[in-house]
Amino acid sequence: MTIVQGHCDPAFTAVRDVFEQNFADGRELGAAVAVYAGNRKVVDLWGGVADRRTGREWLADTPCFGFSCTKAVTATAALLLAERGAYDLDGPVTSWWPEFGEHGKDKATAAHLLSHQAGLPAFGRPVDAEDAADAPARAAELAAQKPEWEPGTAHGYHALTYGWLAGEIVRRHSGRLVGEFVRDEFAGDLDLWIGSPDDVIDRAAKLTAGRRAAQNGADAPKAVEDGNVLERLAGAYVDPQSPLNRALNNPHPGKGGYNNPVVLRAGWPAAGMIATAGALATFYDRLISGTILRPGTLTEALRTRVRGADRTMLVESAFGLGYMRPAMTFFTPAAGRDTAFGHTGAGGSIGLGDPEAGLALAYLPNSMGDQLSGDLRAYRITEAAYASLS
């Protein structure tokens, strides 16, 4: 039996109950969850095993790979530079990155890069983990690439390429890679890294394939119970030529998958963050309280720029400037459907903020869920957090 450790305010016992039930049901190997309400940390829980191979225990300071939860942090870095006047979000990218104008991309704006409208959801050739570690080279490669649609005319999830596009905004206007800028400007005191030192990699949780949920859809969210949606997603995932497969699996992390130290050291700016749940929740708490960005900057960034059928993910998605908004790709309880933002990560992780509710939340597991069959661990935790506010 897994013993969950940490602190939980009595008013948020429902969050602890859901977290413990996930372990009891065999849905977790190791995981952590943290919640802020009204700028006060009300939940900070962890439990289970950080490394299945060695049996190493998950501790209070065990960081975990966050997959695409990284994108919200990278976007915040780019937005902070726009707030400081370094560039115009709605101005042409070519005004500060002339090479990007090739193949009809001359009208693309930074807002297009930040909202998955750039038309560059995947590299045009296979890229390995070693190549992906060279951020300027990967950005240059995307700048020279022909878009799959005219920037600004459609949106499709840029699962990995997003990082080198948004990251180039940061690099060209600060002279620093995303991970350096984030540590220097707003996360230097947090257990959060995009590009991790070896000592952090050594104590980080190791990812493992999770137990596959039942395939009959019994555990799927109602919004995706449609068997045709699940069938299309499953088919796209295994089709090497599908936009979904090309976007998710190139660059390939190589031997060891996302436990590969080459990937973790490089800190891919779309999916390379290692953090504790407490640090990621603190990031969102600072974000909604106006500590990192001005409230007006965040409000404008949360304005939904695109919503509808996603050319990559095949289902409805919605994005502001780098942040997911509630949609099929970002399931949110009714209480947060109009006000929540954040980002999910492959395998079940989530970071979420809600300025109106005063809620900030992060959940990081190392047992990767099967999202195609409706892994609801993060949703149930989020639902319990919202319910505890009333």
Rank of each mutant, 00 (worst) to 15 (best):
A14K: 08
A75I: 09
T54V: 03
L59F: 02
K71V: 04
C8E: 10
E28F: 13
V43L: 09
G91E: 09
G101Y: 05
F12G: 08
T74F: 13
G6Y: 01
T62I: 04
W96S: 15
D51K: 02
L81Y: 07
D61P: 10
V93L: 12
V93G: 06
A50Q: 02
V33M: 04
A86S: 13
T94W: 05
L113H: 09
E102L: 13
L59T: 15
E83W: 07
V35A: 08
E83V: 12
A77E: 11
R16V: 02
E57H: 05
P10A: 04
G85H: 10
A34M: 02
P10K: 07
P98A: 06
A110R: 08
E102W: 07
G104S: 07
A75G: 15
A24N: 14
F19E: 02
L89T: 09
L89C: 10
R53I: 04
K107F: 11
R84H: 10
A108W: 09
R56C: 01
D9V: 00
A77K: 12
A72F: 06
P63V: 00
G26S: 08
K107R: 15
G55C: 05
F65C: 01
T62N: 02
T54S: 15
R27F: 13
A110L: 07
Q21V: 00
G85M: 09
K41Y: 01
E57P: 03
T109Q: 12
C64L: 06
L79Q: 11
R16Q: 11
Y87R: 12
R56D: 12
K107A: 14
N39P: 00
K107G: 13
F67K: 04
V18T: 10
S95I: 00
E28Y: 05
G6P: 00
H7A: 11
V93I: 12
D25A: 15
V73F: 13
L81P: 14
R56F: 00
G26E: 09
Q21G: 06
G30I: 01
Q5F: 04
L29M: 11
P63T: 05
G30L: 05
V42E: 14
W58G: 00
A60Y: 03
H7N: 12
P92I: 04
W97I: 03
G55H: 02
K41G: 04
Y36M: 07
T13V: 06
T13W: 02
C69S: 11
V33C: 11
R84T: 08
D90T: 01
D61Y: 02
A50T: 06
L29G: 10
W58Y: 10
S68L: 01
D106C: 06
R84M: 08
C69T: 14
R16F: 06
D61K: 09
G85Q: 11
V33F: 10
H7T: 13
F19W: 11
E102R: 15
E28W: 08
A32H: 02
K105H: 08
T74P: 11
K41W: 00
R40G: 01
G91M: 08
L29E: 12
A86Y: 02
F100G: 13
A24E: 15
A24T: 14
R27H: 14
N22P: 07
V43Y: 08
D9E: 05
W96D: 15
N39A: 15
A110G: 12
L79C: 11
W96E: 13
T76Y: 12
G104K: 07
Y36Q: 08
G26F: 14
V42F: 12
K71H: 06
